[in-house]
Computed example of a mutant assay.
Amino acid sequence: MTFLNRIEPALVSDDPFVQHFAVSILQDSHLATPKTLFKALEAYDRKLPTIFPELILPHIGFLPVDEEGVQELISRLKTDNENKEWFVNLLDNADTSVLLQYESDLAPYLGRKFYKELNSFSEMDEEGLFLKLAGIANNLDNTYDPTAIQMGKRVANELIGRGIIEDWEPENAMGELLSYSFMPSIGLFQIYMAGELRTESTVPDLIKLLVRDDSDEALEEISSALIKIGTDEVVREVEKIAIDENIFIYSIDILAKIKSKEAEQALMRLWQKTDDISIQTTIADALCQHLSVEAIPLVEHQLEEGYDMIMADLEMSFYASLVLNKIDHPGLHHIKMSLIEKEDQFRQTFPPAENENKVGRNDPCPCGSGKKYKKCCL
């Protein structure tokens, strides 16, 4: 049984803590398939109890969408106007060719300007596509724009899809990026392509960039590429720098999202190598994301000794891991009651009108930066 097969059914769990945990595991892991979208929509349709400020829909914007998914989203756009923005967000994850196929249905929602850009790709030769990508990058050097980044990635995917980007090119690009003292915006797209192509030869340079760079945009893209590549070499190289206090949030998250025994064992070793409570908490939470049975005593120890509640809700992660592993732990009921009590206290402190905007650690930051809350205003 694959890890996805283990975690996907939890999206429709009637236990809100388990459902929330499943979403957090899948986010940024690149494990989900287009079928995962339908499982999440099932949870939305069933109006399952949730600890999200709203139902699950606003928190699944990372799920991949294929043609069947686009058809489903078109149907929902026509019948569920209240949640239109969330369905439109999901369409960002559909391939350009599929969006073009359904232009007449989607143009009213995605906009004529957007479709004009998509249609222009087919008219561009190799040089034109590179110039288009360079133009987007140049604009990003002046103004951060998440929409422009998405368009740039579509151009990058067009280059990859036409076979224009050969395996050696991402490796050369990483070497050039190391010669800069900062990450230029074009570098974000070069790193993205290295991840999309799973170019393992770029791993050493990606690790150097991870240690060097300090912009969240660069660190997010580097982390994503390393997770996509996801080999044992990635695990070994990340383990070497994982407890650096400047990047541990990113490096440990990489090991959390790579679902391999090697990554799990690396996390076990790292927990023993640090006494920093924030780093230990992050590692313990990552082990819960692995559904690690071996790590249960370690996580129990962390809970008993105290943990950094800003870094992770370790109690909830531990509870959900026990449930998903079907472990009849003697403290399971007590932990659930504690979680319910904490959630009730929160809702009493922040009534529903205010609570609507409660932000999860992995949700987009409400400041509008485009970064995750845990890596921005948190």
Rank of each mutant, 00 (worst) to 15 (best):
E158H: 04
G195R: 08
E8S: 09
I222C: 10
I186S: 10
E72K: 10
T202Q: 10
K39T: 11
R198G: 04
L303F: 07
N157W: 08
S369F: 01
E262T: 11
Q190V: 00
L118T: 04
L188D: 00
N357S: 12
A134L: 14
N139T: 08
I254D: 15
K240I: 09
F182T: 02
M183R: 02
T96I: 11
L303R: 02
A218T: 07
N93Y: 06
W271K: 14
M311Q: 12
I277M: 14
K132H: 15
L129C: 04
I186T: 08
I222P: 06
Q289F: 10
S181Q: 10
L219M: 05
I164K: 09
Y180F: 12
N139M: 12
G111Y: 06
P58G: 11
E343D: 14
Q71N: 10
R347F: 11
D141H: 04
L140N: 01
D141T: 05
N157G: 05
F21E: 07
A263P: 02
E237A: 07
S251Q: 05
Q272G: 12
D276C: 01
M309K: 12
D80T: 06
E356M: 13
G128N: 04
I164E: 11
Q101S: 13
G128C: 09
E85C: 07
I247F: 05
W168T: 01
L90F: 02
I247M: 09
D66L: 08
P352R: 09
C365R: 12
K342W: 05
K372I: 11
D344C: 03
L37E: 07
Y180R: 05
T143Y: 11
K116Q: 15
L298M: 10
W168D: 13
V12Q: 08
A32T: 05
N246W: 09
V203L: 01
F3R: 10
D214E: 15
E123N: 08
F21L: 00
Q345P: 00
D205W: 03
L270R: 13
I243T: 09
E343N: 07
L100D: 09
E315I: 06
R112T: 15
L322N: 04
I74G: 00
G230W: 01
E42P: 09
V203Y: 03
K358Y: 15
S224T: 10
G163C: 13
P364S: 09
V293W: 12
T50C: 08
D80R: 05
N357M: 08
E176F: 06
Y180E: 06
M183H: 00
L314A: 02
M193C: 03
E304C: 10
A134R: 13
A256S: 13
I258K: 11
V238L: 13
L298R: 03
H20P: 01
A266I: 03
I249T: 12
I160Q: 03
S24W: 01
L267M: 02
I222M: 11
A312P: 01
F17V: 05
I335K: 04
E354W: 12
N119E: 12
Q280G: 14
F52G: 08
P108G: 04
L129Y: 03
D15V: 11
L63Q: 01
L332R: 12
G195L: 09
